[in-house]
Design a protein around this nucleic acid. Structure first.
Length: 441
RNA sequence: GAGAUUGUAGCUCAGUCGGUUAGAGCGUCAGAUUGUGGUCCUGAAGGUCGCGGGUUCGAUUCUCGUCAGUCUCCCCA
């Protein structure tokens, strides 16, 4: 019999219980927070028509869309979705009767034909956890995006994250200020975005290579190397109405964040934040970890008031952010934030013999009635083996009932983490398992 | 798409200046006389040394090619 070598698709991964239990915990936290802010779940197909996706992200990103062989070259050509924002925009365009503002969350895998770099948290298949709101121009919604990202990361136990905030209007403004044509903004932004990784001199070189006029580069350098506060930036750009608009939006967001109780240590204005995707039009945000510089951003998003109009021809304000499950998960792994777990089972009920199995099953049923995750060892093996199983799987409690216990209508409960055990009745046992009382010997 | 680097047991890695049966630790499984795990002890299973060609009496070791993994750049979650 010939064998097929088992292998996982490059850049994709299997998740075993040890990982999935953590991943589910992370998404549970997200869902809770999302709902708390009034976002409702939706789901869209993994597969879309290519023309729905193409031309929204920018030239580089468009190349990374996973195109499928289905009707290649026609307008019905299919592709795997590259993110969740564009499919969501399609949904909004197709459902004009939605009550606005419409706030949704969406947790699904997306695909990018990229070169994987696991250490940086970069994969070809990964989960995005998106929140977006359409139908409001209020900066409160933008502020909520930041507040939600903050609350999720904080709840998960991150301490060194910073949510960087900037505004495409400011970036467009400084391009104008430097005397450049507005279609250069993308190019300029792409270089500016590297300032957190390389010094200005390097970025300057790149701009020279891109053949920008020296005078323009000079002006950009003046703005970017001085680490200007919002106030002094506003002063410098006081004649540029676009930049002014962007700056006052940021100020408005900061005001809301303050009122929402978001710790100002965890967000900051960063003129060098640019973001590569084409569809952003206003405020943009991105989260980095201070102590994990190699890791890509944990979250990223912004306002995209013109994207939905690409489907409807009518402008519709929208803002959203993505929380990157795989980035968050990878960072937590690397920072040692994840306690090893193999199971969510709390109790293993031992089985002595075929005859006594029914008592074990009755006990298991009673424990489950008390909401305790319970396993029954499936056959009457040596106790030693049943203990070893519980130990290896990290099940904390062992419930033993043989003739002695059955005769007294009790059970022996053993805490494998301490080695303590005691014969108890079921009510007491439940309390011990729930940690309400200890086992006294 | 450009560059760098690595491929030996399930995992982490030794090793052979080219020479009969390629090693360790961890893990797995089984024992230490049948109601108690995690420590210790004993034993076992497990490798065409990534794949293909070349040099050689002889290659896992040298060489060329190829494939795969990893890292950096680009870009992003």
């Amino acid at each position: 019999m010939s064998k097929i070598k088992p292998r996982v698709f490059k850049g994709a991964r299997d998740f075993l219980p040890e990982q999935m239990l953590h991943r589910e915990r992370i998404t549970d936290v997200m869902r809770k927070v999302f709902k708390k802010y009034g976002f409702s779940p939706i789901e869209t197909p993994a597969i879309e028509y290519l023309d729905v996706l193409a031309g929204k992200y920018g030239e580089d990103a468009d190349r990374l869309i996973y195109k499928l062989d289905y009707k290649p070259g026609t307008k019905d050509q299919a592709a795997l979705h590259y993110d969740l924002t564009v499919p969501f925009s399609r949904v909004v365009a197709m459902n004009p009767d939605l009550t606005l503002p419409f706030k949704r969350y969406q947790i699904q895998p997306v695909w990018r034909a990229d070169r994987p770099q696991p250490h940086q948290g970069r994969f070809r298949e990964f989960y995005q956890c998106d929140i977006d709101a359409v139908g409001s121009k209020s900066m409160l919604i933008d502020a909520e995006m930041v507040a939600i990202a903050y609350e999720v990361l904080k709840t998960l136990g991150f301490t060194t994250f910073v949510i960087k905030i900037n505004n495409r209007k400011i970036l467009n403004g400084i391009t104008q200020y430097a005397g450049l044509d507005s279609n250069m903004t993308q190019e300029v932004c792409r270089s500016i975005d590297k300032l957190d990784k390389m010094p200005w001199e390097e970025v300057e070189k790149e701009l020279v290579e891109k053949q920008l006029p020296d005078a323009a580069i000079q002006k950009l350098g003046d703005l970017l190397t001085k680490n200007l506060s919002l106030e002094s930036l506003a002063e410098t750009l006081k004649n540029n109405s676009l930049a002014q608009e962007g700056i006052s939006e940021i100020n408005e967001i900061f005001g809301f964040l303050n009122e929402l109780g978001v710790d100002s240590q965890h967000y900051t204005f960063d003129l060098s934040l640019a973001r590569g995707l084409d569809y952003y039009t206003g405020p943009i945000f991105e989260t980095k970890l201070k102590d994990q510089a190699h890791m890509g951003s944990l979250t990223g998003g912004g306002r995209y008031d013109q994207l939905i109009g690409m489907f409807t021809g009518k402008e519709m304000p929208a803002v959203g952010t993505t929380l990157g499950l795989d980035r968050i998960f990878t960072a937590m792994q690397q920072l040692g934030m994840l306690e090893p777990v193999k199971t969510s089972t709390k109790v293993l009920v031992a089985v002595f013999s075929k005859e006594e199995m029914k008592y074990s099953l009755q006990l298991a049923s009673q424990l489950r009635t008390n909401q305790i995750a319970t396993e029954v060892y499936p056959e009457p093996e040596k106790l030693k083996k049943q203990f070893a199983y519980a130990d290896k799987k990290g099940i904390q409690f062992m419930a033993i009932l043989g003739q002695t216990e059955i005769a007294e209508n009790k059970l022996t409960i053993k805490d494998l983490s301490t080695g303590q055990q005691k014969m108890l009745d079921i009510q007491e046992a439940v309390k011990v398992i729930n940690g309400e009382i200890g086992i006294e010997i």
